[in-house]
Amino acid sequence: MRPSLLLIIGKRVLAALPVLAGVVVVTFILTRMLPGDPAAYFAGQVDSQAAIEEIRHAMGLDLPLPIQFLHYITGLSQGDLGRSFSTGRPVLAEMLDRLPASLELVLVAVAFGAALAVPLGVLAAVRQGGWADQAVRVITTAGVSLPAFFSGLMLIFLFYYLLEWAPSPVGRLDAFSEAPPRITGFLLIDCALLGDWETWHAAAAQIVLPALSLGLVTLAPIARMTRGAMLAALSSDFIRTARAAGLPPRQVLWTYAFRNAVLPVLTTLGMVFSYSLGGAVLVEKVFSWPGVGSFALDALMQLDYAPVQGFVLVLGVLYVVLNLGVDILLVLADPRIRVEG
């Protein structure tokens, strides 16, 4: 690795730091605005003003805001995201327990989206302006217009109630399967590692419908970006040269054009992945998927706010880190960025 490459990556990391700081500040502001006085909550039955004041003092809520912020970031640096009233456990532990379920769902959803949308985008680019192009545009726009919670319900009705193909749409495993001992927390990976294919099939059957409803939303951005990148690649000089040299069209399309269109598509996949983490909340609710989103929602309904704040913070940080990761991958993969930097 040449020093200039390290320098570019270092610059990207540095550029992400103020954004991360912004995420922490926004979460802190949201924390202070949230209704439900935590001191009043802890005071419980001893609902006298003096008791509330005392607890407020003990929790540091009577301090000036900058000092409170200092306490907040000191806590964060020690991994303290507060404690959930409803489960009694630290929010960070709860989030870490549930994060693999959410990530697995989003990963399968984006993989499904890419598998369908990339060929559609290539088709639209090859037939630019034709009916196939129009059809792809309408299909993907329909996909992005589908509320994921609604498509999830309709998939349940069709495949669980009417056709009885899908298992009961509750959670990551049906009642007859036992979760394997946790290695990565990703059920599909853990079962494969342990060679437990029966449970693997059960887990795969559970994830199909939620991943499908989440994946439909990702079709439009992926197909659009593929189409755009393919159009740019197809109109460049090296394609004209390849065609003039008499290379077979298939080879021109996939080997020359597509390979050059892959990078912007990868960037989009990174964006879509992080975006879908947000949309997963709705799908998790519909399918009782035990991820971070349904955890935050359950807490919200019980007016337990620490998990909601933790959820917003963790997803914000994850979003920044994921996009940074994609950025760095691109720097490594694309020599042109190195020249520019």
């Binding site: 995420v23 979460t27 975006y275 983490l277 947000g278 909340v281 917003v312 997803l315 920044v320």
Partner: peptide, 11 residues
């Protein structure tokens, strides 16, 4: 820097 829906939920 936030997934849009998550930020909206937090707000």
């Amino acid at each position: 820097a936030f997934p849009l829906f998550v930020l909206a939920m937090g707000i």
